[in-house]
């Protein structure tokens, strides 16, 4: 690189603009790829975009905190988008109210299953307790999951990553799995993916069906609450 090109790079790489553009660009490309493959589960836009951005960071030797300075503007919108889940929820309020009983039972059963299955399998692999604690809230939306882990002595940044990987895993799995099980109830399909895979699962559910997306959003919110309440007790039983 010449001196002037280098100084331009030094300037740009420190401004939010560059990494904001990289994030949006990666998403636009990933979304196009996902559309070109007719929203095939394996062409998950989050996964493709994350790999693309990670490669750019690696190739340019950029650290994550510098990247996040720009990307935080996108990250911020997660909050208002979560609030906006109330809009489809309100539109479907009659169906939601009629489904209260199955929702509540599936919520408690699913929430406990998500914690116990993950921790039990990791125990078989002989993982140390701090990793088990960090893994336990993997199905919960990131801000809550990280808070839980921190309170219980795990590693919040590891939790954030495991949460993201769980989200992508569930989004890839849900459509073929539900089709194989011949589940045709969009409420149940959406609720399951929202519970198991929080917001990333909810994003996938909205791609497939708006009623499924609505129930996924409800499951995400309720599971955050239930896991925060149940996890300390479940974990105490499992780790002793």
């Amino acid at each position: 690189m010449t001196d002037s090109a280098f100084s331009l790079w030094v300037y740009l790489s420190q401004t939010p603009l560059l990494w904001l553009v990289v994030t949006l660009g990666a998403y636009v490309i990933a979304d196009r790829i996902s559309l070109a493959f007719k929203r095939h589960p394996l062409c998950n836009p989050v996964l493709i975009a994350v790999v693309a951005v990670a490669l750019v960071l690696w190739a340019t030797g950029t650290s994550y905190p510098i990247y996040f300075e720009g990307a935080k503007f996108v990250h911020f919108l997660l909050g208002p988008a979560t609030v906006a889940l109330a809009i489809p929820l309100y539109e479907n309020r009659h169906i939601v109210l009629r489904s209260i009983v199955p929702m509540m039972v599936a919520l408690v059963v699913g929430s406990v299953t998500a914690i116990v299955s993950a921790v039990a399998i990791a125990q078989l692999f002989g993982m140390p307790d701090p990793i088990l604690v960090s893994l336990a809230p993997k199905s919960v939306t990131a801000p809550v999951g990280m808070g839980i882990t921190e309170a219980l002595g795990g590693d919040p940044s590891l939790t954030a990553i495991l949460i993201m990987l769980t989200g992508v895993t569930g989004s890839i799995m849900v459509t073929p799995l539900m089709n194989a099980l011949r589940m045709k109830d969009w409420r149940a399909r959406g609720f399951a993916v929202g519970l198991a895979s929080h917001g990333i699962g909810t994003a996938r559910a909205f791609q497939v069906n708006s009623l499924a997306g609505t129930f996924a959003g409800i499951a995400m919110g309720l599971n955050a609450l239930v896991t925060a309440l149940l996890l300390p007790f479940v974990l105490r039983l499992l780790l002793d």
Binding site: Y27, V53, H75
Partner: peptide, 22 residues
């Protein structure tokens, strides 16, 4: 609201890229 939800996937990218740290 629906505009925000239409591209929900986009909003998870910044936090997810954090995987490079661990």
């Amino acid at each position: 609201g629906k505009g925000l939800l239409a591209h929900l996937s986009l909003l998870f990218i910044p936090a997810s890229v954090g995987v490079v740290q661990r």
